[in-house]
Amino acid sequence: MAFLRCLLLLGLLAAGLRAAEANPSPATPRKVELGVHILDISDIDEPGGKFTLHVLLGVYWQDPAQAHDGKGPKVFREDIAIEEVNTIWRPMVEFNRTTAPAELHHSLLRIYPNGRVEFERQLTVQIATQLDLRKLPFDTQRLKLELESFQYLADEVEVVLPADKLRIASRISLPQWEPGKLVGEVSPHYREEYNETYSRATVTLEVKRHTQFYIWQMMVPLGIVLAMAFAVFFLPPKDLSDRMSVIIASLLTVVALSYSLHSGLPKISYLTVIDWFFVLAYIFLGLAMAGMVWISNLHDRDEAKAIRADKWLRWAYPGAYVLASAIVVITALN
């Protein structure tokens, strides 16, 4: 009887061990260190809502299975590096929100005697972004890079982004933009469509738009056209047809200038600062036409009063437009 009890206890113990092996307790996630060095930003496609950058992406982790007896690291380059890294465990960290396959230029794999693995790639990637153009052309955009493992969940791989491994070149190829603050953060990200949580590193780069292009290509021509339009109040009040011809020509020029500038911008549902400049131009040109009709009718009844009103409007219209434009610019800068 005692022998049977021993056999039963041994059977229960073996079953418990098998259950423990089948459902192991959650282990600590493997830490994977990232390094992001932005080498250049070659394009910010505002109509397409994407940007293109050249980046050196480094992924570093500890793998005891790769420890060896050598005195220095094993080094693999280019295609051999890609072939070798595919034969070992790696965290599969890639960029998120890409609009096209990444273009690989160079790759480097180093495996140290203590099992540290360093895998670096120089890539060109296109990444979708959301631009807030309300303050255009006085805007600062925030370009976001999202990095996460596309194979391992947050309880398996935890990415780390040290501040000293986050860098950007001092100059970029785009003359219209100036790079600014570069920050990174790591947080769990829940994907509702898969009901899974991944460890995500988010790198945010601020780029400030240079306004000189819009000043010389939009503001100065628009100011000249409006000055010519408001100059009609220096013509005799009775010459209504000549005055109207100048205003209509100015209006058509403003429409053409607006079309030219907006052809390179996305079709958005809100007004930018540039839009407000043109809206004000349309309003004041319309008011100028109404003012001329009123002065022409007044001239038929009281010539002296019409001349006095004409002299007042020739300064009131441009002054009011400059004031309204200044309010728009000050609001955008604050």
Rank of each mutant, 00 (worst) to 15 (best):
L161W: 04
S170H: 08
A15S: 09
Q151A: 13
P318C: 06
M1L: 14
V125W: 08
H210S: 01
F95H: 02
L257E: 03
E94G: 08
E120A: 09
H68F: 13
D239H: 07
I327C: 11
L252H: 12
G72Q: 06
V32E: 00
G291T: 11
E148W: 07
W276D: 02
N23D: 09
V75M: 11
T140N: 06
L153M: 10
E303M: 12
F278K: 00
L56R: 06
H106K: 08
P47F: 14
S250D: 04
R90T: 10
W89T: 00
V328T: 08
F138Y: 14
D242V: 11
A332T: 02
W216L: 12
Q151F: 15
T99W: 03
G184V: 09
N334A: 07
G319V: 08
Y259Q: 05
L298W: 09
D45F: 11
I38G: 05
P64V: 14
S173K: 01
L109F: 13
T99D: 05
L280M: 05
V322R: 03
L285R: 05
G180F: 10
L222D: 01
Y270N: 01
A163F: 06
V55L: 05
V220H: 04
P137Q: 10
Q176I: 04
L182D: 03
H299F: 15
N86M: 14
F138L: 14
A288W: 15
D155T: 07
R77Q: 15
P221Q: 02
L123R: 00
L12I: 12
G115M: 12
